[in-house]
Computed example of a mutant assay.
Amino acid sequence: MYQLVSLATAEIEIKKSRFLGQLYPVTTRAEARSLLLNIRTAHPNAVHVCWALICDGDSGLDDDGEPSGTAARPIYNVLVHKQLHNILAVVIRYWGGTKLGAGGLTRAYGQAISDAFKTAELQQVESYCERIFHLQFADESSLRRLCEQHQISIVSADYADTVELRLKLKQQQVQVFEQLASDLLRGSLQIRDPDIC
């Protein structure tokens, strides 16, 4: 998974229509809406402002009056192909006087965003998740040492009849770490994904 570091842009012209491709790093849909409002204000003579958003837990598409599926979908497809998240991709179109047809529009919108990626700086993002470990008091220090050895963060600790440690792990290390912890504590450990009830 990748994310955009900063704004990236490109401009193409097809049959006198100008397509301005813009990529913005965003973290929320509200932030994307605010950017879109500013973009529309900055380009009052544009005939279309089409966009696709992929954000944590949220996404959206808008053809902004272009024939359905000819603008936002090709933009979105480029984002998915590039394995991006937390990104708003916008293409601003200035009418050139010649109709491009559905195929021409699809290619133009996809190309405008693809060209913007040629100047984009991307960084790889590690995926994290949390797990809840239930264990006996006598085993807590052993599990804490194992966490230190594998650079795993302890988010919280709750004490009742047993110890409940909430750990934050890289997605790629979950399976191996769970097995190591289970082996270390001789199976006297319960592990739960907090997102699954």
Rank of each mutant, 00 (worst) to 15 (best):
A120D: 11
L100R: 08
R107E: 10
A116V: 04
R73S: 08
R73Q: 14
D58G: 01
R107G: 02
L79D: 08
K118P: 03
Q123H: 14
S153Y: 04
A72V: 08
A102P: 00
R93I: 04
N86E: 10
A72M: 07
L88M: 04
Q124A: 13
C147S: 13
A157D: 09
A89Y: 06
S153A: 14
Q124N: 09
H134V: 10
G104F: 02
P67V: 03
Q111A: 09
G101N: 03
H134K: 12
T98S: 13
Q123F: 12
R93S: 06
R107A: 06
F137G: 01
G65A: 03
R107C: 01
Y128A: 02
G97A: 10
L143W: 02
S141M: 12
D139F: 00
T119G: 08
N86C: 08
F117Q: 09
A157C: 13
R131N: 10
N86A: 07
Y128S: 07
D63M: 07
G110Y: 01
I132F: 00
Q123Y: 14
L122V: 13
A102N: 09
G103F: 00
Q124L: 12
I92M: 00
G103K: 02
L79T: 05
A120K: 08
A102F: 01
L61V: 11
I87A: 10
R144Q: 15
Q151K: 14
E121D: 15
K118R: 14
R73G: 01
Q151A: 15
L143P: 07
Y76C: 02
D58N: 08
I154P: 03
C129S: 12
A116G: 08
Y128N: 00
I113M: 01
D63P: 06
D63F: 05
Q136H: 08
